[in-house]
């Protein structure tokens, strides 16, 4: 069983009587431990897909199974709890709280899961250690460089030991050198067994992941699968699309 199973998911908006299909009948499996990128130009529906995968939004049609639980009909509170425990987000603009220091920012998800203060501190420091930022624990986000801020954001995403991490254009606001460092960090995390979904418009960045999915007009247009399973053709194709071919 895959970690995430999307089946015939559609997201439909009504705009002035006009029906807009941001996502149109998408089916997708993500296995545990995978490093996958979702590519697409802006307006393609990749953000909508990430929001639905990341439990920030619910689909209009279709079913989602995350870690063995059907969540397409979950309430806002249930989605919040899932985001808290099973999902970590890394955003383009870091999205740290400027009023809190680095440690407090990393502790934030644990506050909403009701973890005691000593345990929070311990785990926050461990997460900071995994991104090499222990020496900045007491700094404010504004005192850090962009790359450091993004690493804090990654530490925050890791701290509740989530099943899956979504990174939305994580290098979009960084220079190429820092961006590379962040991508290297993601690769390292992937190697240590994390499931990471990288959302980007840039094929070059997507190239770091073995598996790529390109979204266009709300549909999965191109699939590239360089994983062993993919190459062996052993992956199930829930949408019945043509078998993957090497890039």
């Amino acid at each position: 069983m895959a970690l995430v199973e999307l089946r015939n998911v559609s997201k439909i908006y009504q705009l002035g009587g006009e029906e807009i299909r941001a996502l149109d009948d998408v089916s997708l499996d993500i296995e545990s431990g995978e490093f996958i990128s979702i590519i697409g130009p802006s307006g393609s529906g990749k953000s909508t897909l990430m929001h639905i995968l990341g439990c920030l939004d619910s689909p209009s049609k279709g079913t989602i199974c995350l870690d063995g639980v059907m969540i397409q009909d979950a309430s806002a509170r249930q989605l919040a709890a899932i985001r808290n425990r099973k999902i970590g987000f890394v955003f383009q603009f870091f999205n740290l709280l400027p009023k809190l220091n680095v440690t407090q920012n990393v502790e934030l998800p644990m506050i909403y899961s009701g973890i005691g203060s000593a345990e929070r501190k311990k785990r926050a420091l461990a997460a900071l250690e995994s991104v090499d930022l222990v020496n900045r624990a007491k700094h404010r986000p504004s005192q850090l460089s962009g790359g450091q801020q993004q690493r804090v954001a990654i530490a925050r995403a890791l701290v509740n030991d989530p099943k899956i991490i979504f990174a939305d254009e994580p290098t979009g606001n960084l220079d190429s050198h820092t961006g590379d460092a962040i991508l290297t960090l993601f690769r390292r995390l992937s190697q240590s067994g994390r499931t990471i979904v990288l959302v980007t418009h840039d094929p070059e960045i997507a190239a770091v992941t073995p598996r790529r999915i390109e979204i266009r007009d709300g549909k999965i247009a191109v699939k590239v699968d360089l994983t062993l399973a993919g190459l062996a053709g052993g992956r199930r194709n829930p949408d019945g699309a043509e078998p993957p071919k090497p890039a």
């Binding site: 806002a76 509170r77 919040a80 985001r83 808290n84 425990r85 987000f89 955003f91 709280l97 909403y112």
Partner: peptide, 16 residues
């Protein structure tokens, strides 16, 4: 607004 969005994305519920 942004802060609230961030808090929600890391798991703050409506009640929180």
């Amino acid at each position: 607004v942004r802060e609230i969005g961030i808090r929600k994305s890391v798991g703050a519920s409506t009640v929180d």
